[in-house]
């Protein structure tokens, strides 16, 4: 019973981390996101401190 519970906890924790991780990574590599990964191409303003 205890071993099964540990397995369930591990599966749930792993599942949550996995889903969050996949979605976060997809967000990170998405070329459409408004973020730092696209800084060299998305913001053509040559002399701005930043954009909102």
């Amino acid at each position: 019973m205890a071993k099964l519970a540990t397995f369930v906890v591990a599966a749930v924790a792993g599942g949550v981390l996995g889903i969050v991780g996949i979605l976060a990574t997809v967000g990170a590599v998405s070329p459409s996101a408004d973020h730092v990964a696209s800084i060299e191409t998305s913001d053509t303003e040559p002399a701005a401190y930043g954009t909102r």
């Binding site: 996101a33 973020h35 954009t51």
Partner: peptide
């Protein structure tokens, strides 16, 4: 942070508020 250019891309993930 105010500057969209200095935000890690993963912060735009739909799951971030849930987490």
């Amino acid at each position: 942070i105010w500057n969209a250019q200095t935000v890690p891309a993963s912060r735009s993930s739909v799951l971030v508020p849930v987490v």
